[in-house]
Design a binder for these strands. Structure first.
Lengths: 172, 172
DNA sequence: ACCCAAAGGTAGGATTTCCGACTATTTTAT
DNA sequence: ATAAAATAGTCGGAAATCCTACCTTTGGGT
């Protein structure tokens, strides 16, 4: 661990206290929630990246392979991947570059639309993503340290939160 | 908006279904929670960055100034900031470089320990961080789109989640 | 039929973050 | 008292992400 961990008991609780003290009580819970989410994301990302290192995958590349492996054909236009994963088109380009270098996927021209490029998962990619999924399921996802009912509540609240911020509508 | 948004109603719910279908039901809730947190973080970061753009601040630089403004002396050793914000020392170095260029903070040698450098917030930095805080409180934190009781529950569950992942103990 | 806007993808550049290696200082242990 | 270990900060480099700008192809409106 390279980051020193001399801290008060909880920096977020501390910040919230400051918020209230400064007369921002009405925004203090929101601030604490957003900060907690940021922090939780960092923690999970760190754990997940550590678990994925043996597979030479980052979380985003894992998510990409996972998506690809779930599709019927094992192939997808880059633009579809960009929309599904909600990442910028140029990010998809470089992700695919990397995965192609690793021999996990391959670019294939679209049969009818010559603008479009398909990414196709290769057998090696399928093997790796399945192994990585087993690892993540066992080491991270299977137990987050919450009870069954707490986990359900949390998921529902997070879903509601995403909905409130326009992450579900715009089906198009 | 540069990222196209042609999606199924909810990609996370979709992924969860796939998880169950593949026999990973026991890990499906955990997967959905982690993915939701990642996604929520992206959404908030995007909103916050947009609100902070007029101040020429990123969220991390904002957090840094906010921390500094809360201290008694308006100054802190770099190492303390690294520990409090849980970011890598080299990240602190470059953040301070940037803030110093902007005229928001200034490096000052520690009076007794010649290894240590203090960062001190300047009047302009204080002005900016207070204005930015007002903006964020009004535009983001004050209403997340949840009821009072939902927000309380969510914060408590997130805190429990962080605790379960060792984000609170190690007081040292 | 034809033209122009829209869609798909990539190149180059900027920002942020981490890691490993390094220097300088301070503290600890023998 | 001195050698070894810990602490504080920085430099160079890698990775991920976004943005703007650009090229090619497609498709709709007239």
């Amino acid at each position: 661990m390279t980051i020193p961990n001399t801290r008060l008991s909880d920096p977020i609780a501390e910040a919230r206290r400051q918020w209230v003290e400064h007369g921002w009580a009405d925004a203090s819970t929101g601030m604490a929630i957003v900060t907690s989410i940021t922090r939780a994301e960092q923690l999970f990302l760190k754990t997940i990246d550590a678990e994925l290192r043996p597979f030479d995958l980052s979380f985003s590349r894992y998510e990409f392979l996972r998506l690809l492996a779930f599709t019927r054909q094992g192939a997808l236009p880059l633009s579809k991947a960009s929309a599904r994963l909600q990442v910028h088109p140029t990010t998809v380009t470089s992700t695919v570059d990397r995965l192609e270098d690793q021999g996990f996927v391959q670019r294939v021209p679209h049969p009818t639309d010559r603008r479009t490029t398909l990414v196709e998962i290769l057998p090696e990619g399928r093997r790796v993503v399945d192994a990585a999924t087993s690892t993540l399921n066992a080491a991270v996802f299977a137990s987050l340290g919450l009870s069954e009912s707490e986990a359900s509540s949390l998921l529902e609240l997070l879903t509601r939160l995403r909905a409130a911020h326009g992450d579900l509508d715009e089906k198009v």
